[in-house]
Amino acid sequence: MSIGNDLEDGNSPEEDRPSVGRALQQARIAAGLTVDEVSSVTRVRVPIVQGIEQDDFSRCGGDVYARGHIRVLARAVRLDPETLINQFDAERGGRPEPTPAAPLFDAERIRPEPRRPNWTAAMVAAIVAVVGFVGFTLFSGGDKNDGSSVAEETRSAKPTASTSPSASPSKSGERKPEPSESAIAGVPADKVTVKLTAEDGQSWISAQDHNGRLMEEGVLRKGQSKTFSDSKRIDLVLGNAGAIKLFVNGKEVKNLSDSGSVQRLSYTKGDPEAG
């Protein structure tokens, strides 16, 4: 009896595994992010984020959209999106197989008809050629001065043609100005330029321009760098600010925050100053 009770009370590893929504919620809380912050960086509406964390995918508009929401939310809270998507499909009986394309039969192919020679067009072209030849012969025989004028024009055109090669070397000898190294390496003064480098570990980052358009979002792994530029302002969200080395307009911004903390920063052309 005791053995039977142990088997009935025991749970399999799959039963101990949290659901998709519960796993996303736990990872978000562990990363120190609120629902509003996750919604801001992923562009997924707050009601949809709250529903997914409760395993309610009815607001997603279908399984295809639900998989897309799960993927971006998992990346925002540093989870493996493929594992959660496989779990999501397993709970719904698996992803449907793609429908194979119908075969193309030879009978359905459109074969072009063989082209036949256009004898009418050939006859018209022959008649036009004969008439043109006769007219040219009569015209050239009636006026002998035409030949001399053509010859004079040909001789007069030769000196002008000989002068053209002398002009070409001067053009080819001109050297185009090359851009200086300082112009390439310098930071533009009419823009705000931000450079992020993950030195002490990886961090989730998000960057937006002054119009609110998303420039970059995702995980910046240790040793990687990203540079962003805008004409007015750049807004940043750093999931692990203590691991980031930040340069604004060519100057380093020190003492951002402790490791593991989330920071929201904004910089313009006059910075670096406290965002």
Rank of each mutant, 00 (worst) to 15 (best):
E153C: 08
L104F: 03
S172W: 05
R111H: 09
F139Y: 15
A90D: 14
E82A: 15
F88Q: 07
R92M: 11
V124R: 01
A125M: 08
A122R: 02
L84I: 06
A129R: 01
L138N: 03
G94R: 04
D143C: 01
P112V: 08
P177Q: 13
A121M: 09
R116K: 15
P177G: 12
G142E: 07
S148D: 10
E152L: 09
E113S: 04
A129D: 01
A151E: 00
V134T: 07
P169M: 05
K158C: 00
F136L: 15
S162G: 03
M123F: 04
W119Y: 11
E152W: 10
E178W: 09
T163D: 08
P165H: 03
P98Y: 12
E108V: 11
G141K: 10
N145Y: 09
R109F: 00
T83A: 09
A102N: 06
K176N: 14
I127R: 05
P114C: 13
I85E: 15
P159A: 10
R109D: 04
R95L: 11
K144T: 12
G142V: 10
N86A: 14
S156C: 07
G135V: 06
F88R: 07
R115W: 07
R175V: 09
S162K: 07
E108K: 06
A102W: 05
D146L: 15
A102V: 12
N145A: 13
F105S: 14
G94W: 03
W119E: 02
A121E: 03
A125K: 04
E178T: 12
T154N: 03
F133W: 00
D89W: 15
T83D: 15
P177W: 01
E108I: 02
V130Y: 00
G141T: 08
K176F: 12
T137E: 07
K144P: 15
T160K: 14
D106L: 12
P177L: 08
E97S: 08
G135K: 05
D146N: 10
Q87Y: 02
S166W: 03
A157M: 13
E113K: 01
E152K: 04
M123Q: 01
E153I: 08
D106Q: 02
V134G: 04
V150G: 05
E82V: 13
A102G: 10
P165Y: 03
T154R: 13
S162R: 07
R92K: 14
P96H: 04
I127E: 00
S149N: 13
F105N: 12
V131Q: 01
A157N: 08
R115F: 06
F105K: 12
A167V: 10
G132M: 00
P169V: 09
T120C: 02
S162Y: 01
R92L: 14
F105R: 14
P96V: 00
G147A: 09
T120E: 02
V128D: 00
G132K: 00
P114K: 10
N118L: 02
D80E: 14
S172F: 12
N145K: 13
R109L: 14
G142I: 09
P159M: 01
E91D: 12
G93Q: 03
A125E: 01
P169A: 01
E97H: 02
F133A: 13
T160A: 15
